[in-house]
Simulated scan of single mutants.
Amino acid sequence: MRIGFQTGYWSRRPPKGIQQFIVAADKLGLDSVWTAEAYGSDAFSPLAWWGSRTKNVRLGTGIAQLSARTPTATAMQALTMDHLSKGRFVLGLGASGPQVVEGWYGQPYKRPLARTREYVDIVRQVMRREAPVTHDGSFYQLPLPAEAPGAMGLGKALKPTVHPFRPEIPIVLAAQGPKNVALAAEIADGWMAGFYAPRMDDEFRALLAEGFDVRSEERSAADRFEVCATVPVVVRDDVEAAADVIRPHIALYAGGMGAKEANFHKQSLDRLGYKEPLDKVQELYLAGRKEEAAAAVPTQLVEEIALVGPAEKIRRELPTWEKTAITTLLVQGDPASMLALLAATQDMSLAGRARSTAGSLLAKVAPSKV
């Protein structure tokens, strides 16, 4: 199991200390760095800026929203990033939710799975550069038909002027619902999970198997499929104090990241068996009582989807995660917690890295918080 770093999206401003940490982690042996976007910072710009200081880590969007760009625009950015990083780029894509898609981008949200299929097909056409890009779908039509509203009828099928660094850039799909997970296994090179709980591993493997069963022969073998899971990490002497850092994050997603009747994040957490307490969390959050909503998040839930508490406790729990379908653990947290985790993984994927190295890097970045 590889260890990556999920920087997420920005809050009010760029996070402090993050570039210093990424450079340090690149030297330590971190596998990858991932960025996200919602309706503030974008996923590509920070990745290019911070990634320009690195030499080894893979650079992934985790995730870039489908509705933020046309498929060809996304392919252009991926093609550019892959050249600049010399083949270290990973394109993470996700459909987001109706509140953002219809409220921020002004686009209809219905049929996200079908839209994702078309989107990925167009991106791959651009990357292969075998012929001018064409697509006649329900969501995307290239070139635009002459009879389309507002069209001049002068559209021309085009190939990218830039030759791709690699004809195939790995595409990872973010998915939480059962059908979405199966779709990722069917058409993508990886799945980015949210709120992964090790005790649900058998169910997740079964969903992936559904997709692998109908996977086309031209796609890479299932044994090369990447499963990424974002796991918050907070190293503190007291478990409850560590859980308190994560509770507002869960309350935000369960309570405010989606309409009450269409909150895919909450539905994902509900499937873990926490519907009743999370109904209360959602009720409090939507009423504007955010601190109470956070306090209502069960500690047991936090411990299922995050690594919290003393470093020794986290060390004991890591083997449970390593036995899951996860191939890349994307940890998210402050630099001090992150580097403590890297030190704890010396017997796993980062074997042989000295604690003293992690300690010296920790001393440099610990004052800053992500």
Rank of each mutant, 00 (worst) to 15 (best):
T327W: 00
L350C: 00
A95W: 03
E291S: 09
Y39L: 12
G150T: 03
V281W: 12
I3V: 10
Y39M: 12
T61C: 14
L307A: 04
Q6H: 15
Q107N: 06
P248D: 04
T116E: 05
L350V: 02
L91I: 09
M257H: 09
T80P: 05
L286F: 02
D334S: 00
V23A: 14
L341F: 08
M127P: 01
A206I: 06
I22K: 04
L158C: 13
S32R: 13
K275L: 09
V57F: 10
G194C: 09
F89A: 15
T80F: 07
Q19C: 05
S32G: 09
R88G: 06
K16N: 12
P170G: 04
A325K: 01
P310Q: 02
F5C: 01
L93R: 04
V126Q: 07
R353H: 06
A36D: 11
I169S: 06
V23Y: 05
P277M: 05
S52Y: 08
M257S: 07
L350D: 00
A184M: 12
A78E: 01
I22Y: 01
G333P: 01
G150F: 12
L341E: 04
H249F: 15
E168D: 15
P46Q: 09
W104F: 13
I326R: 03
D136E: 15
G60M: 13
L301N: 08
N263P: 08
M192E: 11
G211E: 11
P71W: 10
L144A: 12
D202V: 14
A243E: 12
Q346L: 01
A151R: 10
A36E: 08
M348D: 00
A259L: 12
V123L: 13
W10I: 06
P310Y: 03
I63C: 01
L207S: 12
L93F: 07
E317V: 05
L28R: 00
L207N: 12
E317T: 06
F165P: 03
Y39S: 11
S268T: 15
T116P: 02
F5E: 02
L252M: 14
A197Q: 09
A254F: 09
A48F: 07
A243F: 04
A343F: 00
L158G: 04
P15L: 14
A221G: 15
P108H: 07
D42R: 01
A222L: 10
R215S: 09
G190K: 05
P232Q: 02
R12H: 10
T161S: 13
G177V: 08
L28G: 00
A254Q: 11
D121I: 00
K156G: 03
A43I: 11
L158E: 13
Q300H: 09
G359D: 14
A197W: 04
G194Q: 12
A68L: 09
E240D: 15
T72D: 01
P145R: 08
K369S: 11
Q282D: 05
G288Q: 03
V100N: 07
G288K: 03
L158A: 13
Q65D: 05
L66Y: 00
A148S: 15
T116K: 03
A344E: 10
I305G: 12
Y285H: 06
T72R: 01
P319H: 02
L307S: 02
E283Q: 14
